[in-house]
Amino acid sequence: MGTLLYSATMSLDGFIAGPGGDMSWLKPYIGPNPEVAELITGIGALLVGRRSFEGDDPNRGTEAEGKAFGGGWEGPQFVLSHRPPAADVPGVRFVSDLAQAVTEAKAAAGEKAVNVIGATVARGCLDAGLLDEVAVFVAPVLLGGGVRLFDRPDGPSVRLERISHSAAPLATNLRYRVLY
């Protein structure tokens, strides 16, 4: 099976969303990035937190709104939630147990990666020893507050092994393997 990968664009001061989950800050930093394009082609399924699934969209008001990676990816999505919606959402399965959600997403992804979207789900995967890799695209901006990439007060340190790093016009790309 493929890897469990957490990817996010992050401000230089460590935030992936602004205060209140605002994603509009990201708009000026969405642009050509070969690392992101390569990452997208390697994704077989998404594992998404409920707040991220229902949250703000940097593509709000465009035809890319509500589409994964701005419409650059399509496939099965697994949303971790204890409150599934009343109506089914096409292509989306709501799962309440983290281990079950990871197992189902990995089965759906086959040899490709499961991309984790959402800081809380990523932290849960890390704490459970399930997360394989982290890809961070650092944008040249200081947000000053919001949702951190990883917020683990008093959590144990986790060693990472660098897989790659590169520069793109709008971000610095970092990719790490998680060492448990």
Rank of each mutant, 00 (worst) to 15 (best):
R159L: 12
K106N: 07
P140W: 04
L98P: 03
E74G: 10
P90F: 09
V116C: 11
G75E: 10
L98M: 05
N115G: 06
A64H: 07
L130V: 05
L131W: 01
D88W: 03
A105W: 04
R123H: 09
T62Q: 08
V141Q: 08
H82D: 12
P84E: 01
S157K: 13
V92C: 09
Q77P: 08
S96L: 02
V147H: 06
A128L: 07
G145N: 03
G145P: 00
A68E: 07
C125F: 02
E74W: 04
V121K: 10
T62G: 11
E111D: 15
L142F: 15
D127I: 00
D127F: 00
D127Q: 15
Q100G: 06
A68P: 08
L130Q: 09
F150A: 08
E111S: 14
S96K: 10
F94M: 02
V116R: 11
G124N: 11
A107V: 13
D97I: 00
R93Q: 13
E63D: 15
G144Y: 00
P156D: 14
L149W: 09
R148S: 14
G66I: 09
A105D: 03
F150I: 09
G129Y: 01
G66K: 05
D97Q: 07
G110N: 12
A68H: 07
T103F: 01
E65I: 00
A64S: 15
D151H: 14
D88S: 14
N115C: 14
G66E: 06
F137N: 11
A87I: 08
A108P: 03
G71Q: 05
F78R: 00
L80K: 00
H82M: 09
P156F: 06
G144C: 04
S96H: 11
I117A: 14
A108R: 09
E111M: 03
G110R: 11
G70K: 04
A113G: 05
L142H: 13
G110C: 12
P90Q: 06
K112L: 15
A122P: 04
Q77C: 11
V134A: 05
A139M: 07
